[in-house]
């Protein structure tokens, strides 16, 4: 029988160099070159939008800079999703769609509210409320919390579900609060960059753990936050990056949760990825605090990178082990790299 493979809808609308290329083998990882291109385009978009909203004023009001960040991040994510052909669906039935259509807008509303009401109690009440809701929203309707496979099939009892969600909410709140505090204390662009780095590491690790399409969302997140940090760097008035930290922390948490509960992300890897950015605190306390701001900034990035690199290396080793375990031994058979290069 002759196979008549149809050309994917929409693929022709993009320049060939930017079309999503996936390699399929024992697993499927998006093309790294395309990921890099999407990252650059997306970060640039965020930077331009943020800079444009901050530029005409010497000291923009907090709500305007927050709006700039939100618009910048939203447009950057839209650009990255478009280039990487991440196709969200409505109604949002899966974790990625719920992240893009439910969680991000909720986060944007909370951050916009925070821009108008400066009382920390109100801001953190809203953020804690959101932190408690992230995991239940991502896992909504899944086998963990619903009888979707038939009566009595849910994996967690209501009590277990409450306990798990409480622990997850606590973890997110802790990381969010500590990184936000560090950001306010240091007023440095390095904190959101450290979390963006963690997002990239988490996306790559989750992709290697069997959930390849999440890589696009992770790159979009990291690029949006990097663009904001870049804009803050070149801006004369250096607007507060608290909003970018919020987006990146919630995004990092979402990546880890979906990787763990929908993919095969190892629990230890998940914990390391989520808490890695907290190592940015070390230069505040250790002998590293004798360094200048640049030295402390570099050390924050290095300290964050170490656990991420270790986790990524372990995940990659496991990926290769799993792939070769089922790979044919004959040299004429395709290797993993052959699959990665297919279609280029």
């Amino acid at each position: 029988m002759v196979n008549q493979q149809r050309k994917p809808r929409g693929a022709g609308k993009l320049p060939s160099s930017l079309r999503c290329r996936f390699a399929e083998g024992e697993n499927a990882i998006p093309d790294p070159v395309l990921l890099a291109q999407a990252f650059a385009a997306s970060a640039l978009t965020a930077a331009i939008v943020v800079w444009l909203l901050a530029w005409p004023w010497n000291a923009p009001h907090r709500w305007r800079s927050t709006l700039g960040y939100l618009l910048g991040m939203a447009s950057a994510m839209a650009v990255a999703c478009r280039l990487l052909m991440v196709r969200p669906h409505w109604p949002p039935r899966v974790d990625q769609d719920r992240f893009l259509f439910v969680l991000l807008p909720s986060l944007f509303c909370v951050e916009m509210t925070a821009a108008f009401h400066m009382r920390p109690l109100l801001i953190w009440s809203l953020r804690l409320l959101l932190a408690g809701g992230v995991a239940p929203i991502l896992l909504y309707g899944s086998v963990y919390v619903s009888d979707s496979a038939g009566p009595g099939t849910r994996r967690w009892t209501p009590y277990q579900a409450v306990l798990v969600f409480f622990m997850l909410g606590l973890a997110l709140s802790t990381v969010w609060r500590l990184l936000s505090k560090l950001q306010r204390q240091t007023q440095s662009q390095v904190v959101p960059l450290a979390v963006a780095l963690s997002c990239l590491g988490a996306a790559a690790t989750v992709a290697l753990s069997g959930y390849a399409s999440i890589a696009g969302v992770g790159v979009a997140l990291a690029a949006a936050v990097t663009g904001c940090a870049l804009a803050a760097r070149i801006s004369r008035n250096s607007p507060d990056l608290d909003t970018a930290v919020s987006l990146s922390v919630v995004g990092l948490f979402a990546l880890v949760v979906v990787g763990r509960y929908f993919g095969n992300l190892d629990l230890g890897h998940a914990v390391a990825l989520l808490f890695a950015p907290l190592l940015s605190w070390l230069p505040e306390w250790s002998p590293l605090n004798r360094f200048g701001s640049t030295g402390r900034g570099v050390s924050r990035l290095v300290l964050t990178t170490v656990p991420i690199a270790v986790v990524l290396a372990l995940a990659y080793q496991q990926f290769v082990r799993d792939s070769t375990r089922f790979a044919p031994t004959s040299s004429s058979e395709p290797s993993l790299q052959d699959y990665l290069d297919f279609g280029k």
């Binding site: 086998v143 069997g210 959930y211 999440i214 929908f262 993919g263």
Partner: peptide, 17 residues
């Protein structure tokens, strides 16, 4: 097994959902 795991993931059947 490896392919089956991938088919079970959210990239395809999303069996947990």
């Amino acid at each position: 097994t490896k392919r089956d795991d991938h088919l079970r993931s959210p990239d395809f059947f999303n069996v947990k959902q």
